[in-house]
Design a protein around this nucleic acid. Structure first.
Lengths: 183, 183
DNA sequence: TCATTATATGTAAAAAGAGACATAATATCA
DNA sequence: TGATATTATGTCTCTTTTTACATATAATGA
């Protein structure tokens, strides 16, 4: 039971999901490929943290829908009571930023322009997401779901994503303002 | 030549550094243990991206001080001209945040209080760092180093670190304001 | 028709990263 | 005196993560 497996339990604590859906949903918080997810789910099933049901589909391939067990909920509660380990961030742009002076400003600008676009696209997606999440429970954008609401977790995470995205955009724009257009 | 090796080249483009110093300095941008750095430096030396000089020290153990070669500078320039890959962030707190409703608010609060303290400590360190970096070239906090200044990279990175830290603090404080003190 | 994309699951191998083991000098603290 | 911390380099093993291989249905587009 490593961090990723607790992440899967966390997602399963809200809804039952297939391995494929778990893989898609965990991306924003703990990127992982399906090749890592599937064997881990098999292990967690053996450990009785999750169970699965085979769902036959006519239009799409059949799937295994996983659910968290009572034992899984207990594991989740125990995990929540110990402090979270420090976040790990690896960003190639930070490594490049340190030595941008070695190339022409036009080349440097490209790095930050493409990253800026990346964050602008993400911001749009998060904005739409927060609207759909809130409206799914009949809430508007001025409402905050209560602590015991099933939306609470998703809501605070989406707010974090929005704040982070805006800060990154602000930083990219500032960097572009201090890199000359040409020399 | 993976991303970490370009990160080492990036650091070496400013100063010659020992493997130990490289390990310490790369932490904020691309965390890596010495067990990963030392074999990589040996490989990069074989590839003629770096050279080293054995420096005997009387008070401390002897060290190998690495310098970037002309070939290394060429690699750096080529690497800078391709877009940076997407950042990867793995934060256990994000996984926990999704299911905080499963435990008492007091337990949840602890998670965000300890993370808040973590970012406050970091903010202090970055504030001191930016002062020492700027004053090393006789600049004050209102000055911005020019694009060709050797401080430019460090300066934009420290600004990013400050912005990010402040945003994270803001988010933690907001989360604590929406988690009830008790139920 | 062929290529690609999305859905869906799996394995195998390679690369990256973490943790432990190993050595050694000096310094500090109990 | 013994324990720990800092500086310094290195290896070995284990875990984690990525990439590639593999299969299958259905839809979409060139």
């Amino acid at each position: 039971m490593n961090t990723l497996s607790y992440g899967l339990l966390s997602l399963l604590s809200h809804h039952s999901l297939s391995g494929y859906d778990l893989m898609l949903r965990i991306q924003p918080f703990w990127p992982a490929k399906h090749s890592q997810i599937y064997p881990l789910l098999a292990f967690m099933e053996k450990e009785e943290q999750v169970t699965f049901e085979l769902i036959a589909q006519s239009d799409k391939p059949d799937k295994k829908v996983y659910s968290i067990t009572d034992k899984g909920i207990d594991s989740l509660r125990e995990w929540l009571s110990v402090p979270a380990s420090d976040p790990v961030m690896r960003d190639e742009l930070m490594l490049k930023a340190y030595c941008v002076s070695f190339v022409d400003p036009a080349i440097s600008r490209k790095l930050f322009v493409s990253r800026l676009e990346h964050y602008q696209t993400k911001l749009q997606r998060y904005r739409e997401k927060i609207r759909t999440v809130l409206s799914s429970e009949g809430l508007t954008e001025s409402d905050t779901p209560g602590y015991r609401s099933p939306l609470f977790g998703a809501y605070i995470l989406l707010n974090k994503a929005l704040l982070t995205c805006r800060t990154n955009i602000e930083w990219c724009e500032w960097v572009l303002s201090v890199i000359p257009e040409a020399e």
